[in-house]
Structures are given as C-alpha cells and as structure tokens.
Design a protein around this nucleic acid. Structure first.
Length: 590
RNA sequence: GCUGCGGUAGCUCAAGGUUAGAGCACUGGAUUGUCGAUCCAGCAGGUGUCGGUUCAAGCCCGAUCCGCAGCGCCA
C-alpha cells in the first residue's frame, strides 16, 4: 500500500508511479496549482496537483498543515528553475493523480518548527515527537539498544526478565510502592534495579545475564534523572574485575563505532576515586576539560591568613587552586557570580588573584587577599598553579571534601564558560571507591555503592575492624563527565556478607527479614560474580548531544514527576482505595 | 525541604503610569512554479491563581500552582 517513503525517492525513480503516506507539511495554492509538501520521518517531497485534475481534488483543497495524507502519482523531474539542490528530493516532484485525506488535522497548538517551551511540548508529546530532532533522538536510541543487544547476544548472554512487582529495599532510594489487594496492608515495591535478582541468577547457573531493565526511584528529578529510567543490566559469574571491565569497555567501544562511527580509545584510561577527587574534584571528571585542581597547602601553612593557614595545617583540610586561563578579563561581577555559584556547593568564599604581570611579583597581581600573603607563598602559588599573565587563580579552602566538590563544580563551570572543552569523546574508568561513607546525622556507615559490593580485602574481620580504610571492587564508567555505567564484583561468601551488614548496622534479624533468601542462596555454592549497569537514557543523551535525558525518552516526566500528557499521577476513586485497603492522609497544607 | 529563572493572545515574544503590542498560527481575498513564499484584510488576550500596597499594578509585596536549572536527596 505504501510503496515508498518520501526521503527514499530520487531522480532514478523518474517515471515511476508511487504511493506515499505522510503529513502535509505545508500547502500552497498558486492560481489553481496546488502544492503539498509531504513529510514522513525519512524526509519530504513536493507534490504538485495538476490544475487539469482539479476537479478530482476538490476535497483535497482543504489540505493544510499536519493533515495525514495518502498520495499516489508519478515521479517527474522538476522544471529547471525549481530545482532545489539542498533537498535530497529537490530534483523531482510527485505529480499527484490521487490525494486521499486519511485524517484531517485541527490547527496545531504550537508550530512544529518553532522553539516551543517544554511544557507545551510535553503536553502534546504526540506532536512534539513528529519533529525531526525528536524523530532522530528516538531512532538513535533504538539503534543504541539494538546494538547493545546484538553485542551481548553474540557473546552468549541470556536476556532474562526479572519482576517489576518486588520487595521493598532498605537503604538506597525511596521505593515506589504498589498496594496488594490480595494481601491487605502489604506492598510491593517497584525495582530500583534488578540487583538482587541478577545475583541470584548467577547462583542459578545463568552465568551470563543481561536485561534492558526499567528501574524506579522515588527521588527528585534532574536533567539526567527521571523517576523511571532504563538501564542495561549485566552480570557474569566466574569473573574478576578485569573481565567485567573488558567486556563493558569493548561493548561501549563497539556500540559507539556502530551507532555513531566514533572510535573510542583502547583501553579506556583508569583512575582511582582518590585521584579523581584530588585532581578534578569529582568522581566523574570530564576529561575534555584541561583544568586541574592544584594543592597549595604547603605554601600557605605559615601565612597569617587563617582562612588559608587553618585548612593548610589541618589533615582533613584542603587548599586548592584552579587556574582560569584568560580569567583576568573577568569583571568583578562575573567573579562574584562564581562565588555565588560555588556557595551552592557549600563554599564559604572564593578567593582569587588576577595575574597581570607574573614577573613583577606581588606588584603584578590584583587581588583582595594578596596583602595577606608573603613572597614565598605567592611564588609557590604561581608556580604550582602554572598561571600565566592574563590568568586568574581561584582559591578553595576548607574541609577537604567540600573544597574538592565546589572546586570541581567550578572547574566544570569554567570549562563551559571559557569554552575549554576539547571536541572529543573522553571515557574513563573510576576505580577503588571507598566501601563506606560515614553519616554524621545518623551516626552510622552507609555503603557507598550497595551492600553487596565486595571489598578488595577477602577478610571479613579486616573490613569489620576498619571500615574507613576499606576499598571496594566497584567501578564507574564515565564519559565526558557523565556517569554512564557502574558496577562491582559482588560478595559471594556468606561470612563477608554478614560482616557487611554488621558494619552497616543491619541486625542479623533484619538482614534475615530483608535478604534472607539471598543469604541462604549464598550458602549453596555461590560462584564469584560481578556485573555492571549502564544508563541507557544517559548514553542516548550523550550520543544525541542533548543536556536532558527527557529528549531521548518518548514520554518523560516533569520536574515534579508528572506526565503532562496523561496527567499522571491523579487521584483515584474511594472504591479503588477501599479495595486496596488504603487510606489517604490529607495534610494540613492541602 | 531549599535557591535561582520563567509564566502576557493557540505558539514565540514585547510593553515607558492613559485604551497591553508584534511575528507566526487561524479566517477571507490576491498570485500559473515556490521550498515551511509574498501582498491585502480580518479574528484574537486583560497578563498562572488568590490576596495585598497604591490615585494607578504584567510590572511592587505576600502566599500558592505550574515549567526549567541546581542544592539537599539519588544504596
């Protein structure tokens, strides 16, 4: 019935009779001649309805933007003067002998070629998705997923589904809960990831598993975070860290080559978490950015200026500088803007020095703080920072963690603002994460990754005795500053798993309730295993070159986790609630 | 929970204290071939909502809702 797509046509089809389906892109009348631009996802072609045939098209005269049409006719060459070389189909046109309006279109709520705001686009997502950029994004996403599947299938991985209605997990993100009608007062949780199931599969002899898995986390949204998102979940048995890294890296390299024609480095560079924090102030550094944090504490231990000397002499403190190339051209207002920016990340202040003439020593510097520094300190700072004339040096001082974080954020910001990012793909493995993080609020340890991650140490007693020193066998894959994948070698011995729960303050009884099945499964000969999960939405967004994963999700949610098209979430009837034995608590503010 | 930016015609935006404008869209007309054209004419909102301040409020203040970015959160 449809013999061609618009964009598939070219001069070689001259003389052929074809049928096209698509949308009227635009319609124009010129003294009796009707032109219709017909568009589908492959491109568009101009249709001419001959005036001699006008009677037959009386009805079609109503055609306008976005009418859904079926048009039959003969391909012919366009008159010389009309040829449009910019369009693939610019040298031909379709002489229509039959125009059928498959469906009329009401006036559009927004112009498809205009930059409508995201709210209106999401409300009418069916129209938004017709736009070329969205067509491209969704089709590229498909190519990505298809390519990932092909790669894993070829290596004998099994695609195995795991439950969507599952058990609530302690720790981690908030769960989305689903009330059980059959079991009043009880709830399923939607999976935050198939983590436990895939580990169980390793104990079940399915030694190479993958799944394109939808995951759910009831946390606030970001440009790169949706409440439901898609991950490529992979797990392998009888492997060590190197096996997983090799597989994952090879897969990503293949996929980038196939989908984008991009060659990623081989192997990917590797870096410890500690090094990433020290040099880049981030556990997911963007290596396209040439800037690095430089420690200058050694030059400042002796200075009067307490803001610097305090942290410089504190083992838990840090004083780091970041060089902004050409930054001396920044206005006071812009510099203050950076101060406000880092304040968001907990910075108490952002000292700076403009380097006007390095050879002139203190005289060549312009800064509110230089008067607090002696020549030795100044020389040390200039040397360490590598600042040139015309640069500006930013200072971060305080608690090491905070300094690293806000200086890392500043590094990203400067990279963008000063356009320092290399036009390259920069993948990276970040390794050797600490096992645990201490939470002051609740006075307890939290697992940095998840409680099934194996420590480097094989000795449960050692881990239990010194949680602060424990390093995990986890790994993150970072691409251009975005964390696109992460995983670990898992604990496969019951003794170690018990030690983990011990450190995390999960009582034996609680562990039994929450994970009894896993602990028991571990007792029956669990193979060493590990895996990784990739954020499909994030990878697709990187490939498409968009900031937000909403652009690569057909039906995404807004910042308040709503779907503007379906108007979900919404209230339900009392009947439904009663059936589920659920009561809704109305808060005062409502 | 917090911070910032935004909300004015169907859409994108403008607006200095009288009567809130423009482009696009839409409607009608003109044009025998151009590339989301052109020309003419027309239709169209009382400024997200609620409440204040003021002689006077899109413009100021307070609350609230929605969208976006970020912080917290996201094992």
């Amino acid at each position: 019935m449809r013999s061609h797509y618009c964009g598939e046509l070219n001069e070689e089809h001259r003389g052929e009779t074809v049928t096209l389906c698509g949308w009227a892109d635009t319609r124009r009348d010129h003294g009796g001649i009707i032109f219709v631009d017909l568009r589908d996802h492959t491109g568009k072609v101009q249709v001419v309805v001959d005036p001699d045939e006008a009677d037959a098209f009386a009805a079609s005269q109503q055609i306008r933007n976005e009418f859904c049409l079926k048009i039959a006719g003969t391909i012919r060459e366009r008159p010389e003067a009309m040829v449009n070389a910019d369009l693939p189909t610019g040298k031909i046109e379709l002489m229509a002998t039959e125009v059928e309006v498959l469906n009329r279109a009401a006036p559009l709520p927004f112009q498809l070629d205009e930059n409508a705001n995201e709210e209106i686009r999401l409300r009418h997502r069916y129209l938004d998705l017709r736009r070329e950029p969205m067509q491209h994004a969704i089709r590229l996403r498909h190519a990505l997923v298809r390519s990932l599947r092909e790669h894993l299938n070829a290596q004998h991985f099994l695609d195995i589904e795991t439950p969507i209605l599952t058990k609530a997990t302690p720790e981690g993100a908030r769960d989305y809960l689903v009330p059980s009608r059959v079991n009043p007062g009880q709830f399923y949780a939607l999976p935050q990831s198939p983590q436990i199931f895939k580990q169980i599969l390793m104990m079940s002899g399915m030694d190479r598993y993958y799944q394109i898995a939808r995951c759910f986390r009831d946390e606030d949204l970001r440009a790169d975070r949706q409440p439901e998102f898609t991950q490529l979940d992979v797990e392998m048995a009888f492997v060590d860290r190197e096996d997983v890294l090799n597989l994952a890296e090879g897969m990503i390299r293949t996929v980038f080559s196939k989908v984008l024609g991009v060659g990623l480095p081989r192997p990917f560079p590797r870096m410890s978490y500690a090094e990433a924090m020290t040099r880049y102030g981030s556990d997911k550094p963007d290596l396209r950015n040439p800037l690095e944090l430089m420690d200058v504490a050694e030059h400042l231990k002796h200075v009067e200026f307490k803001v610097f000397s305090g942290p410089a002499n504190d083992p838990l403190g840090r004083v780091a500088v970041l060089r902004a190339p050409g930054g001396s051209a920044l206005t006071r207002k812009q510099i203050d803007g950076y101060g406000d920016y880092v304040a968001q990340y907990g910075a108490k202040g952002l000292a700076w020095i403009k380097v006007n003439d390095r050879s002139a020593g203190a005289e060549g510097l312009q800064s509110p703080i230089v008067k607090f520094l002696d020549d030795a300190a100044i020389q040390g700072i200039l040397e360490t920072s590598g600042a040139q004339d015309g640069d500006l040096i930013f200072f971060g001082a305080g608690d090491a963690q905070t300094v690293s974080e806000f200086m890392g954020a500043l590094r990203n910001r400067l990279g963008r603002d000063l356009e320092l990012l290399a036009d390259e793909w920069k993948p990276l493995w970040v390794l050797d994460f600490p096992m645990f993080e201490w939470d002051d609020g609740s006075q307890r340890w939290f697992s940095n990754h998840h409680p099934f991650t194996a420590p480097v140490s094989d000795d449960p007693a050692e881990v239990a005795a010194a949680p602060r020193e424990a390093i995990s066998r986890g790994y993150d894959m970072v691409l251009n500053g975005m964390e696109i994948g992460g995983g670990s070698i898992r604990i496969h011995r019951p003794e170690m798993q018990s030690a983990m729960f011990g450190v995390l303050g999960i009582e034996a009884q609680e562990a039994e309730e929450k994970f009894g099945f896993l602990l028991e499964a571990l007792r029956y000969g669990c193979p060493p295993h590990g895996g990784i999960a990739f954020g499909i939405d994030r990878i697709a967004a990187l490939m498409v070159g968009t900031e937000s994963i909403r652009d690569v999700i057909a039906f995404p949610k807004t910042t308040s986790a709503a779907d503007l098209m379906t108007d979900a979430p919404s209230e339900v009837s009392l009947e439904q609630l009663r059936e589920l034995s659920v009561n809704v608590i109305r808060r005062r503010s409502e």
